[in-house]
Design a protein around this nucleic acid. Structure first.
Lengths: 107, 107
DNA sequence: CGGTATTACGTTCTACGTAAGCATC
DNA sequence: GATGCTTACGTAGAACGTAATACCG
């Protein structure tokens, strides 16, 4: 039912990808994400491999999104926003219900 | 910038959650997901803890989504569909561009 | 007892960090 | 030679599986 090809791609990868898109620089993006360049670079490469798409053109001065990268960035941003919104909503519902039951608020 | 509370929640968790919602049974859901009950049950609990929401009411005959669970299921389904669509789109773009360059098609 | 979810325990795999290397300007 | 991406190597944490336990009909 689920295409096995998209296994392994997670929201985290999209967050990394967007940070790189905005910074155009692995070092700054990694700093903003609270990590270091190597794992970020690997994650981007893994994402590219998983998608079968080259997302950035690397140079000695930074990175530049390809056409495919720019297109994905638009979708990825909407996806991450929707994801975060849904999570926030779920937590809000939890707080509303939790007021009566008091189960997870202290745990 | 990113709320640290939603760190750790990934698309995979939403897929697990939806499978359980549809099967109302950890065993069947796990089978469908190609895994076993314990890690699935743990993942659901971890999701509940991460959200601060109880998603299912457990019983000896299976699980039943709570109101919060049902609400999240609606959003999660849209999210997963949008995610998979975006990934498919990116791969399609990659194939279009790849026809000329032939870089990842064989790898 | 039969069936279902959970806990305990050990293992495997993934993701990350540090350090070194390579390329470009 | 300074800057930025990459590769190599080792480590820490997460996720999974098997086996055993608890709970409810």
């Amino acid at each position: 039912m689920i295409d096995p090809h998209l296994v392994g791609i997670e929201i985290r990868h999209l967050r990394y990808f967007l940070a790189v898109c905005e910074e155009l620089h692995l070092g700054r993006a990694a700093l903003r994400l609270g990590m270091t360049q190597p794992p970020l670079g690997r994650a981007i490469r893994a994402l590219e491999a998983g998608l079968g798409v080259i997302l950035f053109q690397r140079s000695s001065r930074g990175v530049m999104p390809t056409a495919a990268g720019k297109a994905l960035a638009v979708e990825a941003r909407k996806l991450v926003e929707a994801f975060d919104f849904a999570v926030a909503e779920a937590r809000r519902i939890g707080r509303s219900e939790g007021k009566a039951k008091r189960k997870f608020t202290s745990a």
